[in-house]
Computed example of a mutant assay.
Amino acid sequence: MQVDFYHLTIAPLDRLLPVIADRVMAGGGRLLIVSGDADQRAALDRQLWMIPAEGFLPHAQAGEGDDAAQPVLIAGEVQPTNGARHVALADGVWRDEALAFDRAFHFFDGDRIGEARTAWKALADREGVERRYWKQNDQGRWEQAA
């Protein structure tokens, strides 16, 4: 199980998350996007309709249609009713339920860095968990720092 920590410093989540979702889908996977904030879920829903510019990412918010048919599902809880094996924790809050997936993407900004550090340390001793820490360089490119 792999956990990727993404420290958002330059590019905002709404620019990075569609790229991640597109890559997951290109690999034949499904993604569950989790946020406890209803406003953030609505904003991400709108963003996924606009990016990528040459198309759209098929998705829905949980409970607004046939969840099981959605390659990308936006939800308030870690319940992969779309059969996702990848989860994106979009609100900066780590949830241990993410460990049941094949891969977790944990996005956080400066306001949540302390919580992210706590989660990073807690996962260090978990058997079968591979952690990666990604940060943006001065040009906005993502670099693996750990």
Results as ranks from 00 to 15, higher is better:
28 G>K: 02
23 R>E: 15
55 G>L: 12
38 A>G: 07
34 V>M: 09
56 F>T: 15
26 A>G: 11
9 T>A: 15
84 A>Q: 03
47 Q>H: 10
48 L>S: 05
94 W>A: 08
34 V>R: 11
36 G>W: 09
110 G>C: 02
92 G>N: 03
60 A>G: 11
81 T>W: 07
18 P>H: 14
73 L>F: 07
25 M>A: 14
113 I>F: 08
68 A>M: 01
42 A>C: 02
86 H>V: 11
65 G>A: 12
5 F>V: 05
41 R>C: 07
89 L>C: 03
4 D>V: 11
111 D>K: 12
98 A>H: 03
26 A>W: 07
88 A>M: 02
45 D>M: 11
57 L>W: 09
69 A>P: 00
13 L>Y: 01
86 H>G: 00
38 A>I: 08
60 A>V: 04
81 T>Q: 14
15 R>N: 08
111 D>M: 07
61 Q>T: 15
114 G>I: 02
59 H>F: 14
111 D>E: 15
52 P>F: 12
74 I>K: 03
41 R>Q: 05
89 L>V: 00
42 A>K: 09
5 F>N: 01
49 W>V: 05
32 L>Q: 10
31 L>P: 00
89 L>Y: 02
7 H>G: 06
90 A>C: 04
55 G>A: 15
46 R>F: 05
107 F>D: 00
48 L>W: 12
92 G>S: 04
59 H>L: 11
61 Q>S: 12
54 E>Y: 09
100 A>K: 15
93 V>E: 08
63 G>M: 11
73 L>A: 08
27 G>T: 03
33 I>Q: 07
29 G>R: 08
4 D>Y: 10
84 A>P: 00
114 G>A: 13
81 T>G: 14
117 R>H: 03
31 L>I: 07
66 D>W: 08
101 F>Q: 05
3 V>P: 00
67 D>I: 00
113 I>A: 14
70 Q>K: 02
16 L>T: 09
87 V>H: 01
16 L>H: 10
39 D>V: 07
33 I>G: 05
117 R>W: 01
96 D>N: 13
13 L>V: 01
82 N>I: 10
90 A>H: 01
38 A>W: 04
98 A>K: 04
42 A>E: 14
34 V>G: 07
55 G>R: 15
28 G>S: 14
22 D>W: 12
45 D>K: 05
9 T>M: 12
91 D>Y: 06
12 P>Y: 01
93 V>K: 03
11 A>L: 10
89 L>D: 06
19 V>E: 15
14 D>G: 02
13 L>K: 00
85 R>K: 13
100 A>F: 13
95 R>G: 01
107 F>T: 02
100 A>P: 02
84 A>I: 06
111 D>Y: 01
112 R>H: 13
60 A>Y: 03
49 W>T: 05
112 R>C: 05
52 P>G: 04
75 A>L: 08
90 A>L: 03
59 H>A: 09
32 L>V: 10
21 A>C: 15
68 A>I: 01
60 A>P: 00
11 A>D: 12
101 F>W: 10
6 Y>M: 05
42 A>D: 15
36 G>Y: 07
48 L>A: 06
13 L>M: 03
108 F>D: 01
24 V>K: 05
10 I>D: 05
71 P>N: 06
6 Y>E: 01
48 L>Y: 12
106 H>C: 13
45 D>V: 09
46 R>D: 13
92 G>W: 04
106 H>Y: 15
111 D>V: 04
65 G>L: 06
82 N>Y: 10
36 G>R: 10
63 G>E: 14
